[in-house]
Simulated assay, not measured.
Amino acid sequence: MKKISIVIPVYNSEKYLNKCLDSILRQTMQDYEVIIVNDGSDDNSQSIICEYASRYPGLFTFTNVENGGQGRARNLGIHMTSGEYIVFIDSDDYIAPEMLEVLYHRAKEKNADMVVCNYIIVHENGDKEEVISKKFMSQKDMFIDPDVSPCNKIYRGEMLRNSDIHFPEKVFYEDTAFYLKLLPDLGTIISVDDFLYYYVIHGNSSTHGEQDCRVKHIFYVMDDVLKYYVNTNNFYKFYYELEYAYVKILLCSSMGRICRVKDKHFRKKMQKETLYKVNSRFPDYRKNPYLKHGLKAFYMKHAALWNISGCTFLMRNLKIHQI
């Protein structure tokens, strides 16, 4: 068994893939495997993958599938792993040379189920922005102030392989569902202060571009989360935390995207559906114990169709509208 399995979903990443794979080859820890899932790329990505698999036999394993989205590719990759721990890397990103060694040793030292590191956002113009990851004290804390990206973390392999946790397929915002589903199974959670992951922002990044059709995917994703909690008998155990997370994600980060939709008719439709979803799923959410103080809590309690666009604009400009 390898110490770490790295899962990389690839879709039309020929411009960035070499840098991603080279950053893995430069790791200070060598006991790892790389699982690449080519998600129906129609550029030169497959040629690059074959080149690395040929040059480093036994290190790189790949499979080609019809395009089914990043969530499906990651799910397939998880089931191909054998490592003690699993790391996700997006094919347009790259990692620091010591990332695997630091995260693995910290995980082993504390017998952790998950270890989180800081990361650096790399903009297309070359500018870099350091982001300090959230430090969680408990499972419940992770609902209230989530850090949904799967890429700046290391996970216990058997926890992912031997559970029903998966990324929703053929939708966007799949990271949110995976993160929330994972929380009940987490024991020890550790953070490190090192900046080890480089998240590259460009015009084709899956979380950017604000395509109108994507915003409605969040409804399916969040209902998928609720269904998972019901099926695993965790719904009432984490009721208030789940209620808060559901409302916060729909009224804050999701509503921020909806309010930037250019089609006025579609924008109003999505705003109405958001408010309907929130009030039908959790009609008493305004009594939630986590909705006590601050401008964001005030907004969430009083959000209505007549004020939601103005409130969202204000919150975004005050930089307090993120999840």
Rank of each mutant, 00 (worst) to 15 (best):
F178K: 00
F235M: 12
L17G: 09
Y240H: 04
R316M: 12
K135F: 06
A297N: 06
I190R: 13
Y197V: 03
S47P: 03
S133Q: 07
E210H: 07
S149H: 12
S254G: 02
F235Q: 04
K110M: 13
R260C: 09
K237I: 11
S280P: 00
I121P: 01
C311P: 05
A96Y: 13
Y285D: 04
K301A: 11
S54G: 09
D284V: 02
Y198K: 03
Y197G: 05
E273T: 10
D93H: 01
D224A: 01
D93K: 08
F235P: 00
F298Q: 09
E51P: 04
D223F: 03
K108L: 12
A112M: 02
Y285C: 06
E33H: 01
R72P: 00
S47G: 15
N67C: 11
K269I: 06
N64Y: 02
K237R: 09
K272Q: 14
I48A: 11
K128R: 14
Y119F: 14
F167W: 12
S5F: 05
L103G: 09
K292M: 09
L250K: 04
Y246F: 15
D194A: 15
G187F: 05
S253W: 10
R214D: 10
H321I: 10
D39M: 05
C50F: 03
S138V: 02
R281L: 00
N67F: 12
K262E: 14
I78P: 06
F219D: 04
Y173H: 06
D224I: 00
G77I: 06
A107V: 12
L180P: 01
I8L: 01
T207M: 09
L291F: 03
D93S: 14
F313S: 12
V230G: 00
M80L: 13
S309I: 14
E243R: 00
N234K: 13
K272E: 14
D194E: 15
D42K: 11
E101G: 13
L186H: 06
I165Q: 07
K301C: 13
I165K: 07
V102D: 06
E124L: 04
G58Y: 03
H321M: 04
E169P: 01
S163G: 05
N307Q: 12
E33L: 10
D263K: 11
L160M: 08
G157L: 08
Y94S: 11
S82W: 03
T61N: 12
R286C: 09
I35W: 01
D90N: 04
T61P: 00
V221C: 03
A303F: 03
I86C: 01
N307T: 13
V131Q: 05
D22C: 05
R260N: 13
C20W: 09
V221H: 05
S133V: 10
K268M: 10
G209N: 05
E33W: 11
D39G: 04
E174C: 14
I189R: 11
N125S: 11
N317V: 06
